[in-house]
Each structure stands twice: as C-alpha cells, then as structure tokens.
Design a protein around this nucleic acid. Sequence first.
DNA 1: ATCCTCCCCTAC
DNA 2: TAAGGTAGGGGAGGAT
Length: 1175
Amino acid sequence: MSFSSDLFGSEDPDFLSALAATEILGDAPQAGTKRVPHTSSHTGSALAPLEAETATPGATAYTDAEAYGASRFGELGDYMRRKRVKLQVQNADLATQSLQKPQIFKGLQFYINGWTMPPLQDLRKMIMEHGGIFHAYLDKKGLVTHIISTELTPAKVKEFARMKVAKPEWIVQSVEAGKLLPWHEYRLDVGKVAAVDQSGVQSKQRTLFSVSETRPSSRIDASVETSNPSERVAPGSKPAPQQMTHQESLDRKGDPKAAPLAPPYAAHKSNPFAERLMESTTWRAAHTSVADDYVDKYYQNSRLHHLSTWKAELKELVRKAREGEDEKRRIGDDSSDGLSMRGAELHVVPKSPAKALSSKTKGKWKEEDRVIMHCDFDSFFVSAGLVDRPELRGKPVAVCHSSSKGDDASTSAGVASTSEIASASYEARAFGVKNGMSLGQARKLCPDIGTIPYEFDKYKKFSLQFYNILLSHADDLQVVSVDEALLDVSAKAMLARNAAAKDGARARDYAIELAETIRDEIKEATGCEASIGIAHNVLLARLATRAAKPAGSFHLTRSQITSHMASLDVRDLPGVGNNIREKIKSKWGTTTCGDIAENVSKDALRQTLGNVMGEKIWGFVRGVDSTELNGDQKRKSVSAEVNYGIRFETSAHAEAFISRLSEEVARRLQAINVRGASLTLKVMKRDPTAPKEPPKFLGHGACETFNKSKPVLGPGGKATADPVIIAREAWDLLKSFGFDPSDLRGIGIQIQKLEDMDVSAKDGQTMLNFKRIEGPKGSKLDATKQGMGKVVEGAGKPVAPSRKLGAELPSGFDVDSEFLAAMPMDIREEIAVWAGHTSAKGQEELAQPTAGPSRPSPANPAGRQRGASAPVYRIPTFSQLDASVLDELSPELRKEIESEYKAVGALPNVAGPPPPALLPAKAQSVTPTRNRIDTRHITKQLAPKRSKPVSPSKNSLFTRRPTKLDISATELTELDIDPDVFAMLPLDVQKEQLAAQRQLKKPPAPVGDNLKVMGAVSARNSRSRSRSVSVLYSNAPRAQAHWVDPPALKKLTDTSDLQDLLTRWVESSEATGPTAKDLDRFGGFLADCMDVDRTGDSSMEKAVILMKWWQHLCRARWSNDELVVIAEQRSLIEEDDDWDEGPAVGKAWWRGFFAVKARLDKICKARFGGKLSLK
DNA sequence: ATCCTCCCCTAC
DNA sequence: TAAGGTAGGGGAGGAT
Ligand SMILES: Nc1ccn([C@H]2C[C@H](O)[C@@H](COP(=O)(O)OP(=O)(O)OP(=O)(O)O)O2)c(=O)n1
Ligand SMILES: [Mg+2]
C-alpha cells in the first residue's frame, strides 16, 4: 500500500512509455545491445585535454554495491568497494618525478595481494617509478595485468586462477636488472585448482588478458585507468558501447545462483528502465543535470543536503546561544577568537590552537562525575510525518520520495523502486527494513510497507523546538544532527543528587528523571518521541540511547559497562564503519568488543588502525572515552556537490552546470559571510566498465573520483566568494581532466582556507541577487520563502521547569537554575559542585533546595509530569565559600572562581554581568502580565525618587542596593539637554542634538520613549561628575559619536544605575517591546562607549557589562525566543512566520538586542578586527 | 617532532 | 521516477 497521493508518473508520457517498455523487458535483452542515444551523439564535445603533468592527481574507483539497494549507509555487502584505498594518488607524483628511471613496467598494471616482502609500499614505489600502474584494489580486473603475491588462500587461488600471478621477486629483480624479466619465471603456482568461475567473471578475465599487452599511450590514460583500447578515446571522440559488459549484467541478473558467487567487480548491472527514459530528449532535458534549474530542484529534494545544512545551521545557532555564557573568555583573554576589545588588540599575537584548547574546556569534572546525555528522536522523519497521520501509527511505514505503488506488476518487471528510505518506523524495522535502504529492497522484506512524503519544513521546526528545550536543560550542548544532540548535565545532576541526599530520598535516579522531563517536553512540543541515553561519557551515552529506544531513557551505569560492551560488535562503536570493522575482522578474526578487549593489545590496535584510531578503539571496547563536548565548532570549509542525475551530453552542459554549482557555493559562502582562498573540484567519472545507467535510478554508479585543488583569488589577491571567479576556476580544473562529458557522474566544488569577510571588503565582488540567503532549498516554499521557513517557538511552550517557578521564590541570594543558566558554563558547573559540597558539609542553609511548585514527588519518581522543576539553591557570598572546596578545584578553575568573586567586589553595586549578578529570581514568562507596567505610566512615575518601580522587587540585590534615583520629573525634562555641555559641542553636533530633541518632544511618544527617561535618570545621577552625560543619554545616537567628555565616563564606574535603568526599561516595555527610538538611543550610547580612544577601556567594559545584563534580562524573560531570532536573523527562517504562535514581544526584544549587538560588533570589528564578545 | 596536503572514512 | 550531501576526524607521507 502506498499512502502517498500521486500515482506514478501519470503526466509524464516518456515515463509511462518507458515503464511499459520495461515491463516486457524480461525477454528483451536488446536493452543491453542498444546504445543510449545521448551517449552516441556529440562526439565533438569532449572537454579539452590537459597537460600531462597536471593530469589527474589521483583516481579512485567508486563501485556500486553488487546490487544497488544493499544500502549505502547501513549494511555492508560490498567490502570491495569500501576497502579501496587510493594509493594511486601519489602514483601520479611518483610517476612524474621518476621519469629518469627505466620505464620497464610501462603498460603493466599491478595488484598486490596480501602480505609481501618487500612490503607493499616498497613494491608500489618500484612499480610506479618504473612506469607501471599500481592498483590498490582488484575490483577492476579488466585493467590489472599482473597480480603480485607471496601466497594465496584457497579462495584467492580460485579467484586468480586465470590470472597472471607472480612473486614479488619479479618486481625486485626486474628493477635491479633494469629490464622487465619474464614474469612466468616468477609465477606463483596456482594452476592446480580448477577454474570454476561463472561465465561473467570469465569473460572479464579474458578482458584482463587481452588488455594486458596494450600499453597506455599517455600518462593521462594511465592515471585515469582507461586502458581498454576500445574504451579510450581521444578527447572529442566517443567511447564504444560496452555491449559485452552490459549483456553480462543482464544475464547474470537472471541467474539467481550466480549472484552469491559473483564477485562485486563483475556486477555492473544496468537499469533498463532508466535507459529507456534516457532515450527521450525531452525527458533528459527535464530530469537530468542538463535542466537549467537542476541544482536548485535537486537540493530542494535532497534529504542529505537538508541534513547537512541543518547541522551546520544548528551548530551556528548553538554557538550563538552559548555566546555570553563564557565569562572567562572575556575582555583581555587572548584565547578568545570572538574577541572583544583588549582581547582583540592582543589578537595580533597568533593564537596557538593548543593554548586555546587548554584554556577552554578542561576537566572541570572528574571523568567519573560527568553526566552526559544523548538525545535522539525515534525514527525522526517518520515520527514527524505521523503527527498529522495518526491513522498510520503502529504500521510499517517509511519516509521516501517514491509514491508509486509497489504492485506486483512493477516489481516483477524489474522496476522496483530505487528510492531511498530516509527513515523507517519501528514496525517496519521489525521486518528488517533499515534507514538508507531502497524502497524496492524494503518491499521485499515488507510488502505492505507504506510511504510517507518528506516534510522538510516540519523537521526543521521540530528540531528548533527540540534544541530550545535541550538548551534550557543543558550545561553544555553539542549538535550531532537535526534530531540528535549531546548534553552535558553534570551540574544539574550533581545538584539533583545532593538535593536528593538532603531530602533523604536517594533511591531515585535523577538523571533519568531529568531525561524523562526532557522527553516529555519534547513530546509535548512536537508530538514526537525521543529517546535519551545517559552515561558518564559520550560513547556510553550513545550506546545507552540504543538501549533506550524506542521511546525511553536508559542510564548506563558503571557496573553495567563491562557486560554491556562485551556483547557489542565493533561496528556499533561510533566511528567504526564497515571498512574499519572489516579491517579489524581480517586482522584478528573477530569483531566482538569483548574479544578485542581481551585479546588485542593497544599497540596492535595502533599498528593496524593508526595511533589515534587504535587508541580510541582500545578505549572504546572497554567503555572508555574521554572526549569532551564541543559546542563551539567553527566551519572550515564550504562545499556543494551533486552526484545524482549528472548526465551531460556536451561540455557546454557541464560548463553551465559548473556555473550553477558555483553560484550555489558562493551563496553559501556569502550567507555566512566568509570567503575562501582555495578551491577543490571533485569529479566522479563513470568507471569504464560500468554501464551508462547504473542500477540506481539516475545514480552515479561505479565511478572513479578525482580531486584537484588550486588557490582562488579575488580582485585584491584576496580570498573570494565570487561565483564568477569560482566558476571560472572550477571550469578550468574540470577541463584540465580532459574527460568526456558524458562520462561525468558527479561534480563538487569545495572552498577552503576560509576567512571572515568584513562588510567593507565586498569590493569588486560579484554579488548574487539572492533571495534565499541560506538554508536548504525549501521543498515547497518559493524562493523568497526559503528553506525551513517557518519556525518554531514552543507551540507547546517548552518552558523549562526552572523558568516556571520564581515568582514564588523568597528573596535573598537565591540561585535557581535560571541564574545558573545565565552563568558561564564552567562557572555554573563549579557552583553546582560547590553547592553540593557545602551541602554535604552540612551547610544546609546555603544549599538547601527550595521546593518548586511541582517538583517531582516521590510518588511520581519518574518525574514525568510536566512542570517538574529544578531545586533552587542559595549561593553563598565569597566569604562563605568553604576554602576546602576551592582547594579541590584545579588551580585554573580556582583562579576563575576567585576572580569572579573579585569582580563582584570590584563593582560593589553592580548587579550584573552574568556571574556575580544575582538576578531577580522571577519568572515573567509564567505570569507575563503581573508586573507589567504601562509604559506611559512609568514614564511619568519614574521621576520621583523611588526605590523600584513595580516590578520584581524579589530581586534582593536590587532592593538592597540603595537607589540613587532622586530626580523629579520636572527636572528631568529640563535636563534633557544640558546647556553647559551643549555649548561645548561642535556645531554639527549641536545641530544634531537640537534636531533630535525637537524630534523627541514632538509627539508625546505613544508607547513611550522609555530610554529617554532612563538616560535622563542616569544623567541625573552622574550629574555631579559631568553634565555631558545628560547630553549623551537624552539625545540622538549620532551625537554620541561626538561625545567629548571621556573623563566623565571614566568616573562613571558604577554601572549599577545603568543596569537599573536597563532593567526598568525592559520591565516597563515588557509587554510592548522596545521602541525603535529607545533602541537607537541605547545603541548609540553603547556605541560611544566603544570609542576607547576617547573614553578608555573602562567605558568599553561598561558597554559589555550592560550588554550582558541586557542579554540576561532577555533570557530571563524570553529565553525561548533567542534561538528563534538568531535563526531569523541568519535568514534561516522567515520573520513573519505564521507557524510562530508565540507572543511577539520576546522576539522584538531579542531583535533589538541583536541589532544593537550588531552595531557594536561593527565598531569593534573596525577598531579591533573582531566582534564584541559577551563571553 | 610538527606541520601541511591530500585523501579515506564516517555520521546523520 | 528521483533527488547518492557534506563537514570533520584522522592517517599517510612529504616538507620543514
Ligand atoms: N541513511 C539515512 C539516515 C538518516 N536519515 C535521516 C532520516 C532520519 O529520520 C534522520 C535521523 O537519523 P537517525 O539515525 O537518528 O534515525 P531515525 O531517527 O530515523 O531512527 P532512530 O534514531 O530511532 O534509530 O536522518 C536519512 O535521511 N538517511
Ligand atoms: Mg533519530
């Protein structure tokens, strides 16, 4: 059954007729003898040949699995393909550099089997240096002329029965003799075993022999491995059809018994159905790479493209979201790359990666104390699809493009769908269906499997909700994919554990409870199930997730590790694919983790797998993994490639395609504001022995791949993101290969050596008229309504528990998780440790959990109910800190903590920035209207000296701090402009200010220019120091740029007033959002603070503090909107998204925040070369 | 040793 | 019909 609406190809005559023709093809072998039209024309269209010296730096074959559908991602089944290593890369180099040596092996092509003496590398070198061609793998028997081997297993004896197999001495002694000695004198005797190969293989091997004496006429041919004379063509001519090979495939296909015996290299099946379609000019024009919108269309529908794009976007979002949480990487910290001020200045000193690394994340938690969670949606695409198709729940279904019926007629006709299944439901998995499998394959296993179409928009939307939820719970987070992330919840878990100990309830697993809370939130927000694995390292957390699925959580604890690991296959370890698994298997004969752990030494593993990999595996099989989360990954390359549907007929087609692809790459570069200095072109070329149409519909089939790179320079000799330049260079590279365009099966362009592009640097660059800035091509959205368009914002208000309480909290130095959330991650964890520690020491008053309204009760240990909340802790003052706690910390951390406290001391009245700031422990998001103040009202009422406006008051810091507001409303208005200061201003500034003032006074400001008030208040406060302050505050931003009284600012060391005002501003406009005017004014003020030359570093620090504070205020209220707005601003989503059900105020504030941030960034960049860091 | 460059391999 | 992309870890081997 199919759940998709459209039937197959109803409107496509070519498609229908091809289908009809194919259905009777069972006895119509002519498909194999017939040439596909487009391959027989355009004989003059080959790309230009290349210089021999620059030819093909390397070539690898990319064979298809024997039968397409054996699954590229999951199953093995084609070890031959994966085993291939590309030793021929260096071959070209070796060959070029050794022209002086006698080319005794010229025209010969070797494969070296098994262990040899001298070792493979040496033999390879000898072969290459003397004109021979070395094959790392044997799947191209049609090319290999000789096999070198010392001994053969019975299987190999059989396989090589009809080949020329010689001992290594032949090579060695021929080289020594300086001439080619007769190989049969070194023959390895394999003749006793009768050859029982099936016919297909046999004919292949005849090819081997017949080819063996043909010498490649050029090095191009050699490295390209096109030595079959009937195949090789001068550029511009056409290869002959490969009827033989083709026919073989068809024959073999009909012989079920041949299949298991058939070696992969002989299995070049074709796709007659596709061949039929390719006969139609109009069909080709509409459905292959020659279509002019092919690239766009293709990307719109490519799930893998979406997956990759989303991952990159999410990484960036998380990076942004983390920003401002890393206090230690702030001003003056030379390890910063997002730098601020002095850090930027110091940036002249090149930063050592190692240093940055070490200063960054270092064992805050003892290995065993970490708590890592791995969260992953259950069959994500399917789950998302089922949300709106509840009737399909519980059935075997899969997400794929195919909407065709899997009726008997089509399957028996050999047109089983080659559409790949992106995700299969667990019911389908019970039949053996796997992600990545072709639909046809799946139908064999599960004839009744249903299909669900892709809904890329929905996946992205769910993903953002998912990440919002995770971010609200995590101390640190690393993006794994659109549906998967790693969390560090060490601090939370520690807090919970100690809370539990305190309560006397300790049988519960708080990590599991947290996991269940998270799962519930995800379920509520998206309607989808996710599973969560918990353990003390990343490896084990991932493995735990496997045990948790579906729809569960699992904590893999220490005592379970050994037994859990022992039963696993190495293939289950992250980072071990089929290739490495086979390597292990062939080396040690087992792939069980337990066996490896027991019998294989670390050195042996390192020897075979490489130092790092070997060591990693050694640890993995024991459940050991010290990898730390990295939520701060920056992109190092940008690329775009298409390896599907590439079917060119002329070089003009190829050139046009390169152009399109270049535009795509340029667009991606420009979207993230970078340029690149190096370009790599990747080319997939049909393997000469492969059919024109591979089994997978429009797939690339068996291919050789080639890479070539070169520097790319824009106008100023600088890096570039110019589509025209990229296209030119890429086209040059492609031409240099000299391939027949009709053999191309894949093209990719990668840009490396990225550098940030400052706004000013876009000089001579060709700018694309982009509508869509970034993001995957939207499936159904038009170009302007790009990508995953819609967003998010908790449909199910995924509010973190911690945010739900607060209004009820007592005042005092309470630290709830909201506060923690505002802290730098490192510090947060530290506080947790320390809170736990003091608690354990009996200082209950400092670490006593304050019950939230709906903390998980013992009666509901799973804590599954919504609204479970994190306990609240009190943070002690520095003096209360138990010194012994500090002693236990690493010196580095200790210093950090101490400096944090010092910072508080240095700014006695400062309520902010992140760490020292003890925040109002309130939760506006819960009672949004409660404390809201009418803007106009507050504008008026602000004047009289009063401790605090309505608000929160719960903020003990605020209430304790003596307020300095003692200005009257009248006075305020009068002081809008200070005459004295005004007189000192330059003429143009005077004008500006006058204009601004007039503007200000004109309308009564309907919603309120609160910032004006705010500025005035502050001005009043510091009036005794300098009147210029009032000018600064109450006038238009532009004037501030000319602000002339640095000493005054310097003296304004106490930012608390400003913070107060900032707080008030936010509070008073909590319901309405900031006015543009206020934003501009505030931004202008901060911008002036950045003028270090005039105001000094301290004012800059002030600006940073205020920004941090502002950020905090926003986070405390609208944390769910932060990511959304970041996404929006990076054009990942649309602003006016109709999916966005949340109130607009939060987003308005965040937009304001980021707008000001951008303004400061710009200044910072111009001044210091780096962005303002709020870390 | 340590870097750089060119891959292979893996993951979703 | 069908949409087999893409970034980063790491190994090999050469340059420094
Ligand atoms: N070969 C693959 C593997 C995955 N995906 C997409 C679809 C999946 O839904 C999503 C997430 O991949 P997972 O590996 O997490 O698989 P699922 O979420 O589908 O299943 P589960 O996580 O329950 O095993 O990525 C894909 O398109 N092609
Ligand atoms: Mg998943």
